[in-house]
Design a protein around this nucleic acid. Structure first.
Lengths: 111, 111
DNA sequence: CAAACAATCAACTAAAAGGTTGAATATATT
DNA sequence: AATATATTCAACCTTTTAGTTGATTGTTTG
């Protein structure tokens, strides 16, 4: 069956609030590493590492221009994750609905 | 601002394939710890720990009946996560659309 | 060319994650 | 009462994660 390991990486990457904040920062367009790091209280290096995690998860793309690295958001993995989670949610939703119906019917039959 | 740390826990819990498989197993209804653990190649204890992670994330509920612990799925956090991810995705989708429109307009003006 | 700047690399630390085995606890069964 | 079963607890190990500081690489600028 081999479940896609990319989902692991995506969810893992998204599970960290700093990384989610970095993604949000990129919503207003490209930004350099230093710019992205600026609002955080941790070191530039720490943010650089977070960026690499996002890059490995393909949630972020890097374009080098001279000494500057411009980062931007990539939608693919987010779409995939959304798809998985929606699918899963709907799956359970129908199961739970069926269960509820079942219980209601049995209850009706008993009265 | 205080971003909800529950999202961290949910995504973290979902980022592991064993835990996703456990959730899937529960889709056919309640199951005991041993039953849930059976298909995995790791020890019962390891699975027990995964279950505790899911429990802390409120993705799984436990009902004790004598020595048996019956586990079942809880939809709340999955719904929340789906909501967050959908919201985020749509947010970016519109940004990217706007950017594309902008570029197309500029292109049109130039010709 | 020298100094400043943008970013990573390298080495280290502390904590968390994921697994193991063995003991303990509580409940059922004979 | 003794034994078997279901589950967790406790201790331990290894790997990964998230952070630090200091050195290094490459690019720009005075």
């Amino acid at each position: 069956m081999s479940v896609p390991r990319t989902l692991d990486r995506t969810l893992q990457a998204l599970a960290d609030p700093t990384r989610r904040a970095i993604l949000q920062r990129l919503s207003s367009g490209e930004a350099r590493v230093t710019e992205v790091a600026e609002p955080f209280r941790m070191s530039l290096n720490a943010v650089s590492k977070h960026i690499m995690v996002l890059e490995r998860a393909k949630l972020v793309k890097r374009r080098k221009e001279g000494r500057d690295h411009y980062l931007s958001y990539l939608p693919g993995p987010m779409d995939e994750a959304a798809e998985w989670i929606e699918h899963t949610r709907n799956f359970w939703s129908s199961r739970l609905d069926a269960l509820e119906r079942l219980l209601r019917d049995e209850d009706a039959k008993r009265t």
